[in-house]
């Protein structure tokens, strides 16, 4: 009985390992991976790549219905890392060696290329608010200061050359809510701020860009975070600041021989006009 169990397990393990040895087959279908509707990353990506179409009545997201929907950056990463035929897009701050970032129109996604505008697939990280309490204003000042922007420069692109930050340590509670892409950066900022001003407590809820903006409008949070441009309706009701720039990296499996895509090819892949890896 134990023997058969071991045989079974070894069989499954061998089967799982065996696929690693297979060569890349360019004739196979592209497994397009997208994010859920409402994700800031998806919103920015479809706008930048022309996947969003304007009609008389409004705008339409033309992402193919065959696209696999992954509900988080890590799910996209894991899916692409495990699937030789997958393509996906993630925040550049989350990029790691498990996957390969493609050049878009021949430009490598690096911080320099995003800062000087050569790499086109980039979007702003916004913070938005209605009115700021004294302590919330202090925190926003910190984010936009030299110290704050230095933390931003860890994985993202800072936006301002700012002065050094000093605080008179106001106390109070700040609720920050919104984009799941901005949250990791915001947590780092909060930790650094807490060292300078231990009197403030900051609560971060990662609930998505749209929810963050809505929370700021409705007053359920003090500061909203968005990983995309604000909509016109949101801009009307909120004061907003760009706190960082973030690239969107287009990623494929490390076994995939493709290194470069053009924006047109990317659009065609995501709209569903191109379905095979023999681009």
């Amino acid at each position: 009985m134990k023997k058969s169990l071991i045989v079974l397990l070894v069989g499954v393990l061998v089967a799982c390992v065996a696929r690693v040895g297979m060569a890349f087959d360019a004739g196979r279908d592209i497994n397009v991976i997208s994010r859920e509707a409402g994700s800031g990353t998806r919103g920015a990506f479809i706008e930048l790549m022309g996947i969003e179409a304007k009609t008389d009545e409004g705008t339409i997201d033309r992402t193919t219905v065959e696209a696999i929907i992954a509900n988080g950056t890590d799910v996209v990463l894991a899916s692409v890392a495990n699937n030789p035929y997958a393509i996906g897009y993630i925040s550049m701050g989350s990029l790691d060696e498990r996957v390969k970032a493609l050049k878009v129109d021949g430009v490598t996604p690096t911080q320099e290329n995003i800062a000087d505008g050569a790499y086109k697939v980039a979007r702003p990280f916004n913070i938005a608010y209605k009115e700021l309490s004294i302590v919330a204003q202090d925190f926003v000042d910190f984010i936009m200061s030299a110290q704050g922007q230095k933390i931003v420069s860890g994985s993202y692109i800072p936006v301002v050359e700012a002065e050094s930050f000093t605080t008179n340590r106001p106390s109070g509670r700040i609720v920050v809510a919104g984009s799941t892409s901005v949250s990791p950066l915001m947590e780092k900022l909060q930790e650094a701020y807490a060292k300078l001003n231990p009197n403030a407590t900051i609560e971060i809820q990662s609930s998505g860009s749209t929810a963050g903006m809505l929370g700021a409008i409705e007053g359920t949070c003090d500061i909203g975070m968005a990983s995309r441009e604000l909509s016109d309706a949101e801009k009307e009701q909120l004061t907003y600041l760009v706190m960082a720039q973030d690239g969107i990296a287009v990623i494929v499996n490390n076994d995939n021989p493709v290194d470069n895509v053009t924006s047109d090819q990317l659009r065609d892949i995501y709209v569903g006009d191109v379905t095979r890896w023999s681009l």
Binding site: A15, C16, M22, D29, N31, I68, N82, N83, Y85, A86
Partner: peptide, 18 residues
Amino acid sequence: GLMVIVPFIRTYLGGSGY
């Protein structure tokens, strides 16, 4: 499921595995 079942199905039965 993501790491084991999905690749297994993709490799042996085709499709994306999802």
